[in-house]
Nucleic acid binder design. Structure first.
Lengths: 143, 143
DNA sequence: AATATATAGATGCATCTGCATGTAATGTCA
DNA sequence: TGACATTACATGCAGATGCATCTATATATT
């Protein structure tokens, strides 16, 4: 039988995995080379900042980031330990808590962004033209 | 200033990360639901089989899979423990070793593939038409 | 050949993740 | 209201990963 689409699909899948893994590795390496923490710290802090003036709860962040409950729990634990965020008790639901961005967290975001941005450009953006970028976005949006 | 490409690039980057992470999670979940091991086991076994009739060395697999040396070392350790591959001493370089696919490894590949294939289709292939698949492949090939 | 350098692979230790489960608070429904 | 199910978050334990380093062999340099 001639399962042409099947073959092409698997090839595309393999390439997608390979490329995204490699890109992530390379970009994380750039951050590490600048003595900056990894992207998941950035993502949490950014979500918290973007939600301002509202506060997010761990469960909100977890859903936005598509990670496991226990992972966000411990990730926040580390951020708290570094003074980047604090926990604030949540009156409307005593099981819960709000995550508050501290100045140190805000500063870290600002410090990471230029490096992160440059890495995205270097490893990703610079290799595609505008048409390819929007075409990629459009295709990915179907997934 | 009007950095339109910059914005689009970051958006595409974010979507690429989000989509690839989600796809990987979903497909790994399908494997786990079928009581099968994770994709990195599959990848190692597949590389070893594809290289036949030649044998691969850990360092070869490591390069093909873009993972760290200590990770491939331990991954192979687990595969050996499960009887999926064996190590064979390497005459031409006494530091090295060959990785030999055992029947159990071959069987596991055959058992995983239908599930893996179905998961790729369900979460990825079925959501794109042929044109999108080749366009995606083409764009990713530039990265 | 003798020495220095590089490469293949393993491993101790700390950190991180997955899984199962625990605790406490909330929501549901008779 | 009381009993039961659900949700938010934390955590003990086992397994996986990152980092640095070790051993052994191979290669390059003189």
């Amino acid at each position: 039988m001639n399962d042409n689409k099947g073959k092409k699909t698997c090839q595309a899948w393999a390439r997608l995995m390979r490329v995204s893994t490699k890109l992530l590795q390379d970009i994380e390496l750039d951050l590490k080379a600048a003595n900056l923490p990894s992207l998941d710290w950035y993502d949490v802090l950014l979500e918290v900042r973007n939600a301002q003036p509202n506060w997010l709860r761990p469960v909100d962040i977890q859903q936005k980031m598509l990670i496991q409950q226990y992972n966000i729990s411990r990730l926040i634990e580390r951020l708290v330990k570094e003074g980047l965020v604090t926990r604030k008790s949540c009156d409307c639901d005593k099981r819960g808590q709000y995550i508050v961005l501290e100045p140190a967290g805000h500063d870290l975001l600002n410090k990471m962004w230029p490096i992160y941005k440059a890495a995205i450009d270097r490893h990703f953006g610079d290799k595609l033209n505008v048409g390819e970028v929007s075409s990629l976005t459009q295709i990915l949006s179907k997934l």
